[in-house]
Design a protein around this nucleic acid. Sequence first.
DNA 1: AGCCGACGGTTTGAATTTGAACAACTCGTA
DNA 2: TACGAGTTGTTCAAATTCAAACCGTCGGCT
Lengths: 152, 152
Amino acid sequence: MTETRWLNEREMTAWLGFLQATIKVHRYVEHQLKEDSDLSHAQYEVLVKLSAAPEGAIRMTDLANGLFTTKSGLTYQVGQLEKRGLVRRRSCPTDVRGVLAELTPEGHRALREAAPGHVEAVREALIDVLDEEELAVLGRALERVGARLPVE
Amino acid sequence: MTETRWLNEREMTAWLGFLQATIKVHRYVEHQLKEDSDLSHAQYEVLVKLSAAPEGAIRMTDLANGLFTTKSGLTYQVGQLEKRGLVRRRSCPTDVRGVLAELTPEGHRALREAAPGHVEAVREALIDVLDEEELAVLGRALERVGARLPVE
DNA sequence: AGCCGACGGTTTGAATTTGAACAACTCGTA
DNA sequence: TACGAGTTGTTCAAATTCAAACCGTCGGCT
């Protein structure tokens, strides 16, 4: 066991800033979506992915990976969305085990209506607070951070 | 209602990077603590704050604010820590309503033992992945982001 | 002293998250 | 063709989170 490399002041600032910012930004975005569109952020992201799917439908597993969520968590959220008629499930033609999720017309509408407010919240909470340089550095750095860590 | 200012590519990269990085880093740190010290990250942060308290004890509300958590969430977590004998509650001498939380000797020990592994995980997941410039920019920028948003 | 709005912390119930267990199925290989 | 390891999505119970309701107390004001 080697000596612990404690965080110096600059590192501590970055870590605490990261913690505080992430918690607050997530909470802010979550609230805005729930308030204005009655969607959780997780649900919103599901709608986005489905809407962006090349064939209009995605396998559950691919969806879970793309959203950095667990399989069981996704099953739950898609279940909620299906209850509300925003998403439909159908079986995968090439793999009997597979399940494809796709947006219903109501799902498309819900996303279209929720998107502007959500983007505004993202700007308000994060994007518009940063200048050009910060935006670039943050994008580059955090992308690298995320890519290094396992999905689950 | 003015026209929606959608995110351009650079902004979208920053936002997606932020989402992915935050989710994964939080999960990574959470797992490491649970695995190696049987503590949730929330519980670890409580121990840290208590350990850093000038008088060795803090009011629940101050603790909640310092940790960007909700009052009820804190009540639950402190309850868990108390069950395990890491934290003690006593009433505030100057305010009957108030409750002070403080570390027990076991709490001090648990923190001392958990800290090195936690710091290592934080480095592994975030700090050591960034260079000097990124560290500085990230610290400055995210601190500003966090400060702008309401606690709750 | 007495009132009243605000505060401090807990309780409550519902919603969500998690990992593990599970059953059904796929696919490469013997 | 038959095997077995790995995959797919769901289910389950337990843990956690959240907001709202709640109760007792504080403190300024009359």
